[in-house]
Design a protein around this nucleic acid. Structure first.
Lengths: 215, 215
DNA sequence: CCCCATTTCCTAACGCTGTTAGATACAGAA
DNA sequence: TTCTGTATCTAACAGCGTTAGGAAATGGGG
């Protein structure tokens, strides 16, 4: 939604409101641009400004630098991920079909595969602290939701008995690894087959030995 | 080892030999540079050329473009990884202590954590095909070695019974996920605690229920 | 032995990137 | 109307990957 070069003004409130709106517009534009260009490497400050009808320097009125902009996107990504996980947990409690873990794993899977570029971005800035006080809140929320699911569903997992965090880390690692390898195109059968492996993945955590039969 | 601006010549053979040497020198310089700068984002063509005593354009006499140079590094990385895995498998066969899987997992772990930047690079160029005919041979070798270990050690894993590839993909995903989260600093206790989780990881594949005690 | 063709290496440049400085023009307040 | 602040722009800088074209030095053929 380009601004036709029109100047937005108004008394104090209106200006602040417009500021927030343009900030959100920039974030949305970045996501749309990443979608078009097939990755956040294609998201450039100038292209971003162009897309909202401005020139490059205005972006720096809303974000200190590109890293800060990406950080905001990452935080939003974790928030959406937490939403998806929470929905899955909640839905499971209502109609108790299947296990909690498969439901949560499915939610994690469909979130990451529906927004592959965003998911990659979330795990690409390696200097975003984790397990530290500076960790973005939504990311911590994701971890807590995963732990809830793990502790509730997998009391029999060897690691769970004495350390819920350990079991959660392992579950998260397994999930993350499968998603990453899939997004990188490194699972032979592609996303379809990879998705089929999800069932086995959760089985190893529920202790559900040889449940799903062959084929 | 800068070249002091001296021209390297000689009869045909010597020239070809010098070419190969400089090519290798460039690759080594890239790895050293990545180590210094803390990542391959810091490896620039000009810095690379500087480090071997030349100017930027000579790099293009040895690699078509930066991507090709990185690809060569990636292939070398997978080759070294395969070496480490093979050594672990071999060493296990000689003195049968512990399981094959823990040994192989340990080898994978120490390879990736001793060369974190290289490991990241190996999994960052997402358009490197896998499970395709164009897959670099050393990468395929890594997969085969992992599968050997999995099939030999985990006949009881639910997925293994009817699909060794599936079990290998899952094992690889679990390992890769744990390594990645650790390298990204997203495991609370840092590499030390993450390494402790490795045991539990292999346990879920050997079917070794509650082996390693608490703590 | 000498000249030539080839190889090696460089400087300069292009278009792109993130980012900053400084000028301009306009909106609201007085 | 005049003043003040801010929204926005143009221009520029340094650095990136990459290419074009020229200069120097060399080994091999006459």
């Amino acid at each position: 939604m380009p601004h036709d070069g029109k100047r937005v003004k108004g008394s104090a409130d209106e200006r602040a409101q417009a500021r927030d709106r343009l900030r959100a517009e920039l974030l949305a534009a970045a996501r749309a641009l990443a979608e078009e260009k097939g990755g956040y490497e294609g998201v450039t400050i100038r292209a971003l400004a162009d897309r909202v009808g401005y020139r490059a320097p205005v972006v720096y009125e809303y974000f200190a630098n590109k890293r800060d902009l990406l950080l905001a996107l990452i935080e939003a990504g974790f928030a959406e991920c937490a939403d998806a996980l929470a929905k899955a947990l909640c839905a499971h409690e209502q109609r108790r079909a299947g296990g909690v873990l498969p439901a949560v794993a499915e939610a994690y899977w469909s979130f990451s595969l529906s927004q592959p570029h965003l998911y990659r971005l979330m795990h690409s800035l390696s200097d975003v602290p984790f397990g530290a006080p500076a960790t973005p809140a939504p990311a911590q929320e994701c971890f807590v939701l995963l732990r809830n699911a793990v502790t509730e569903a997998a009391p029999r997992h060897p690691a769970t008995a004495y350390d819920a965090d350990a079991a959660t880390d392992l579950f998260w690692a397994h999930l993350h690894g499968l998603v990453m390898l899939t997004l990188d195109g490194r699972i032979k059968g592609g996303p379809t087959r990879a998705h089929g492996l999800l069932g086995h993945l959760t089985d190893t955590f529920t202790g559900n030995g040889a449940r799903s039969g062959p084929r």
